[in-house]
Design a protein around this nucleic acid. Structure first.
Lengths: 327, 327
DNA sequence: CTGTTAGCGCCTTCAA
DNA sequence: TTGAAGGCGCTAACAG
């Protein structure tokens, strides 16, 4: 492996000079620079990243911890992160927890000494986690969930939920069902649910117990939740608000299977603006969350923090309701 | 930052001894080991990865270069890679080229000195690329495309295409259209097309020129390609074979829009077993490529190569035709 | 403008 | 079973 020393010898200068042209810092005569550059070109020399890191205490790597890369939300966020980070010469070290909370903690340990900062695409806000993060005082940004004392980039889940609900009500629905997720996920589980309840209440609409069901983050569980709603309700709802597109699509597939028509017999809305949502039949009314922007913002805040510049502690992103034929 | 030296001092041993317990190599008395472990526990010490790398020439990091992380194929591969790599203490450094071939080359340079090996999820096999790869002689595996003299994990695109075509023919279709992609993508562009042509020929079926169209990797272009087929054909095909699910779904959305029924008026098949494919209406006949397995295999071969064990130069994965209602 | 020097934190002989 | 010493490749004062 060719090292800075070899380059120095070959170009007839000292290692410092080579280092100077590499980082173009300090003074280097045009003549020396050219000689060095020629040798670098000829040898295809690339400096060793870890030797550099050892010296500078900077790795130019950001750790990204996420629950899965197979769904659109995290992969869009990663795309946004990557785009912004690479602009500044940073790279991404990927840590996929596969929805395993244990691994979340483990990865934190694993990453702490190899990265300049961490982005967590979060699905929960358990104190164990936030505690640990604070304890290692490493630049840190959380995406998708709010937490005290950490930089976070979130969506306005509460108002989104109110808006979607209001949208359904405005379309004439008074009996609205809800498919949510477990409340350990604060953003998706609590805030969206609260938004739904609050809006219903403000409209003086009541909610039958069986109208509210819970699923996990996949299509199949949306299907099951819908089944339960249909089977257990005294009076069937005329509209369903599902907190994710996949749940909504699961619900759609169930009601279609039992011969109901959408939106005539039942209207359905989701959240997420997944690609799927435009191609199911009928196209699903949903909310665009701009996940790539979230990734970019997260990167910006993290880099600002790392570089000691001004950063915002909390960013709440904009959203857009996409009204389509399912309502 | 606490270093190995601090631990040594606190545990009243030399740095070497600490290093020995850290890597459990060489002899360490039980007594010394316990003292060291206690101090490590107490301080929460984690060794510096880059200092270690500098010494050992191993980073325990694998670079993964991919065109995008937003579609299912690459994200599934990455999941498989991650699963296998993490078992062996390796991590993933992600390089998203955003379909930019220039960046592919750049990333190669960027990564070469920071990783122990590279996995490329390839969309082309241009000599510039393979040349460069060979020139840097770094452990390397290519996923999805074949190339000479590099380890690769591929799918059997040619036979898949023949099988799908045969399946359509067996269902009674004799006029079959084809939506492909550009042939710079050898696997998807050439092999699948060749499989289609060869099977048609072996069945003595002719193909009208307008039946064969080309798109890019998105739904919209499938839609456009389908439009062209419908508008330009003298005789409309009764079945369409699209080389990816998204193209197929685009085609579906077009034919539905003009009032044709699937599969009554026209049958459609794709490749990829995307999640979308099961929830479009009707569910799409497609081929499951087992991308996660591809990722796992790629990781296994790469690690075997790195560790000087036996590896296979070429792995061709199995597939499964999923017959659904669109045919 | 350039070279010398001194580590960064770790592992690995080598000798004890 | 342990410690001393050297060096991985690089940068950053500091002195010329």
């Amino acid at each position: 492996m060719v090292t800075i020393k070899d380059i120095a010898t070959m170009a007839n200068v000292s290692r410092s000079t080579v280092s100077r042209v590499l980082n173009n810092s300090g003074y280097v005569s045009e003549e020396a620079r050219q000689r060095v550059e020629k040798v670098i070109e000829a040898t295809g020399y690339v400096p060793s990243g870890y030797a550099k890191s050892l010296r500078t205490k900077q790795t130019k790597v950001i750790g990204v911890i996420l629950p899965t890369i197979q769904t659109e939300t995290p992969s869009r966020v990663v795309t946004g992160l990557g785009r912004e980070l690479s602009k500044h010469g940073y790279q991404i070290l990927l840590a996929n927890t596969d929805h395993d909370k244990e691994k979340e903690l483990e990865y934190l340990d694993l990453l702490v000494r190899q990265v300049d900062g961490i982005v967590l695409i979060a699905t929960n806000t358990e104190p164990e986690l936030t505690q640990k993060i604070k304890s290692m005082n490493l630049p840190f940004v959380m995406v998708g969930q709010e937490a005290e004392n950490v930089i976070c980039v979130t969506y306005d889940d509460y108002h989104v939920a109110r808006d979607v609900t209001a949208f359904l009500v405005d379309k004439g629905h008074t009996q609205i069902g809800f498919i949510g997720v477990d409340e350990t996920d604060q953003a998706v589980g609590c805030f969206r649910k609260k938004g739904f309840y609050d809006e219903m209440k403000s409209r003086d609409l009541s909610i039958e117990e069986a109208w509210v069901q819970k699923g996990v983050f996949d299509i199949d569980s949306g299907c099951k939740a819908m089944k339960k709603i249909i089977e257990d309700s005294k009076q069937r709802p005329t509209a369903i608000f599902a907190v994710t597109d996949r749940l909504a699509i699961g619900a759609m597939s169930y009601v279609k299977r039992i011969g109901m028509e959408i939106p005539k017999d039942i209207a359905i809305a989701g959240i997420g603006a997944s690609e799927l949502s435009q191609y199911v039949d009928p196209p699903l009314t949903t909310v665009d969350y701009k996940n790539e922007t979230a990734g970019e913002e997260a990167a910006k805040q993290l880099l600002a923090f790392i570089q000691g510049e001004d950063y915002q502690k909390k960013i709440v992103l904009d959203y857009r309701l996409l009204s389509r034929d399912s309502v």
